[in-house]
Design a protein around this nucleic acid. Structure first.
Lengths: 347, 347
DNA sequence: TCTTAGCACTTGTACTATGGGAGTGCTAAA
DNA sequence: TTTAGCACTCCCATAGTACAAGTGCTAAGA
């Protein structure tokens, strides 16, 4: 546990603030000038040497000013940062963007990722509130034409997943209906993961009663099921990455985009949501590609509909106070909006 | 109409070939060495001066080698290029990637964009075969839960468009059924654009018979309808743009990505498909953002299911002979694959 | 008339000084 | 403990230089 003197705290704080806003290493003279008390640059230099000794700041070359290290940012975020109060203007933008008459919850979630990325010029993620376990509440097959059928799966969360497919003539609609009935009788009400395991054990045998070659059908049911079981999230401001990434390495950019499109990997990155606003800095993230980026994650409580997550990906060198303030305010607005949404459509 | 001597043709061809493969302006000496007949560099210089006079090639600075101008590429593509015979290896890749047992035509189309972009390292577009006019062949409302309904629209093309929405309790399912029947009776079989106009004129009045406030319902129907009427296409290798764009201007890249995501604008860019393989070079495209890029467009005939389009976007400085050869071969394979697909699922 | 050797000239690129600015660590005095 | 002073380091922008690649032009040769 690192303990710093008040002055050292002030200096570290000033270095982070300066560096995140200017991008230029901070020197002792400029620093001395902006500290509230009177100190000479030499004194500041001594303090900086101490902070460097502790690994909180670093030099880019032997005679450069200092920049915060990951450890320094961590200390700053844990002990020094004060979230900026959000601008009235920003609150207005959030409120008005969210207030429309959305028909689906996914639209709200998608919009939220967009607003957050617009406000910050970074990349935002939004995950809708979810019970730990959503349950299968219905499975339908809707005939669309001679050969086309749409499979629809509904969860008690209100999630709907659908997929159309072509059937071979070998299956009659009576047979299909029997199978659908079987599934609805046996599986409705069960959590999706149990449904998935059932799909691999008992079900095939029972289905084989009705169908000659149940593989095709089971595959479709399985597809729709896994789609529904996947945690999916919306990404806003993908292209902003081009702005805030100072890497000119195309391959690195490609890896990042690939990462963002893989919901599994991204779920790893977001990690276990906690109650608080959480900041992960550079190499603190498991994924190596993200070493020059930071992620601010916030969960919000949507009443009895579980908790949702919003996250913000930006450069390690980001103005944390502003961003944390913004994410904090945003999370509240979004939670409120969703509670309203559910109240309206629930009962 | 420009007419060149044989030797000038050879020189222009060599310049394009050299420049597209090396990216370096081509000088007279290197050029003289690779021409089939014996000529001195001075002679080549004289010819180059003539070609420059005609606006077919240009210098990057007063004493540099020459690069082709847009006009020069145009002349090359129109008169000189010989499509490369496709490599056996590439044909194998195409065939094996397309041969899987696809359940939906969209999967084939999507895959095709991916393969083409992989083979070329450029960005590929794929548009599925379509009748000029697809017709509404069915409209369904599938109740999913207490308040959720899924609207499904099918065209005679086999396109399926669906959307879920929440209903207010004011509408009873009887009312909805009546409306659905009305739509199916009156509109099925009509081309989508007629359905769209009907939606704005007669229909609202008739629907008002059954529903107190028809706006919500009509909006949903309209939404699903416009989604189905939109020409949609798949894009493969979006990220390749980062490789082949030599622009470091982030805003320009953003504009390009925004363009690709706007199907309307992109339809403009693709333009009217013709029978042939069509090459649009740099400023020949209406869109200013594309001035440093070229687009190879090819239509293919999927029997009586209309014609589809594939397109390839790369740098103006692309190896046209290879790309044209590749697109040509690809188009044939894809057409064949789709004809097979339709044969299997049609009757 | 066409081709070509020769030559002066232009430009981009890579490399090398050069000086100034910003910043540091250290020392010694207050 | 603080601070003025100073030597030192490193980055960066600028200018100069040499060189390679290429050009246009001229004049002689086929």
């Amino acid at each position: 546990m690192i303990t710093l003197t008040d002055r050292q705290n002030m200096i570290l704080k000033a270095i982070v603030r300066d560096y995140t806003s200017s991008g230029v290493p901070v020197g002792s003279k400029a620093l001395a000038a902006q500290l509230p008390m009177h100190v000479s640059s030499a004194t500041v230099r001594n303090e900086m040497a101490a902070l460097e000794e502790l690994g909180l700041i670093a030099k880019t070359h032997s005679s450069s000013g200092r920049i915060p290290s990951v450890k320094g940012y961590r200390y700053y975020v844990d002990h020094l940062v004060q979230p900026d109060p959000i601008k009235a203007n920003d609150i207005d933008i959030i409120k008005s963007s969210l207030e429309g008459q959305f028909l689906k919850i996914d639209e709200i979630i998608e919009t939220s990722a967009k607003i957050l990325s617009n406000l910050t010029s970074y990349t935002a993620f939004s995950l809708k509130p979810e019970h730990k376990q959503s349950r299968l509440s219905g499975f339908r097959l809707v005939p669309l034409g001679k050969r086309q059928v749409m499979a629809v799966l509904v969860t008690d969360n209100g999630d709907v997943e659908s997929q159309t497919f072509n059937i071979t003539s070998k299956i009659t609609s009576d047979q299909l209906e029997a199978v659908v009935r079987l599934i609805n009788d046996q599986l409705v009400g069960k959590p999706l993961d149990e449904v998935l395991t059932a799909l691999k054990s008992d079900i095939p045998m029972q289905v084989a009663h009705y169908l000659q070659q149940p593989e095709g059908f089971l595959k479709i049911f399985g597809d729709v099921l896994t789609k529904a079981a996947q945690e999916r999230f919306y990404v806003g401001g993908r292209l902003n990455l081009l702005n805030f990434s100072d890497s000119n390495d195309v391959d690195e950019l490609k890896s990042l985009y690939t990462l963002m499109d893989h919901s599994d990997d991204m779920a790893d990155v977001l990690g276990q949501p906690t109650d608080h606003i959480q900041v992960k800095i550079g190499s603190e993230m498991t994924n190596d590609i993200l070493k020059d980026y930071s992620l601010i994650t916030a969960t919000y409580d949507a009443g009895n509909h579980g908790t949702g997550v919003i996250a913000l990906l930006g450069p390690t060198r980001m103005p944390y106070s502003r961003m944390i303030g913004l994410v904090g305010a945003f999370r509240q607005e979004l939670a409120q909006r969703l509670i309203d949404y559910y109240r309206y459509f629930d009962q």
